[in-house]
């Protein structure tokens, strides 16, 4: 269990980092080949952008896990703590809906057009589109986890209050 947890904790960053390094490397290699041998690799652009798509969508899940996505809390900060906690729970609930809906749409999207292929490598578009399913699927899981944690914290605190009041 612990090992599994450790793996899933770093999985997204390792995965995303791997694809980021592919992106950087193929572009560098292409410049060098073109400069030295006057001939670049025609598939570099598509490989670089496809790897980047995977890096971004999986990386977005990693960033979400550590709450790195930027939002504006200037209004919500004005409310008392209890209201803020409720807002936070509602937001987590909405994040579950948004992310799982995208994940669901991506399965429709992939199924509906199996014939589509990528422009340069001429491989099935599935290999690119699946990044959406994986990225937003992972974010759905994190959102569920956050919701559970926050509800538990909230109810614990409420019952504690009741105890101290009683």
């Amino acid at each position: 269990m612990n090992l599994l947890k450790k793996f899933t904790q770093n999985f997204e960053v390792v995965f995303s980092g791997f694809f980021l390094l592919i992106t950087v490397s193929v572009v560098i290699v292409n410049v060098i080949l073109r400069y030295l041998f006057h001939s670049g690799l025609f598939w570099v652009e598509e490989v670089a952008t496809t790897a980047f798509i995977w890096s971004v969508f999986v990386g977005a899940a990693a960033a979400y896990k550590y709450k790195m996505h930027i939002g504006i809390d200037i209004i919500t900060k004005l409310f008392p703590e209890k209201v803020r906690e409720i807002i936070s729970i509602i937001i987590n609930f909405m994040m579950i809906i948004i992310n799982s809906y995208i994940c669901y749409l991506s399965t429709l999207f992939i199924q509906a057009n199996k014939l589509k292929r990528t422009p340069v490598l001429d491989i099935p578009a599935l290999y690119v589109n699946l990044a959406i399913t994986v990225g937003f699927g992972l974010m759905t899981i994190h959102a569920i986890r956050f919701l559970v944690i926050e509800i538990r914290l909230f109810t614990n605190r409420e019952s504690q209050k009741e105890e101290t009041e009683a």
Binding site: L20, E45, E46, F52, I53, S55, V56, F109, A112, V128
Partner: peptide, 27 residues
Amino acid sequence: TPPDLILQKFITSASSFPLLAVPFFIM
């Protein structure tokens, strides 16, 4: 238009070569 087709834009907007300047210069 079917709603899932908006996902086209997720892919096409991210698969722009010039956009790669973002990760490169952040790195």
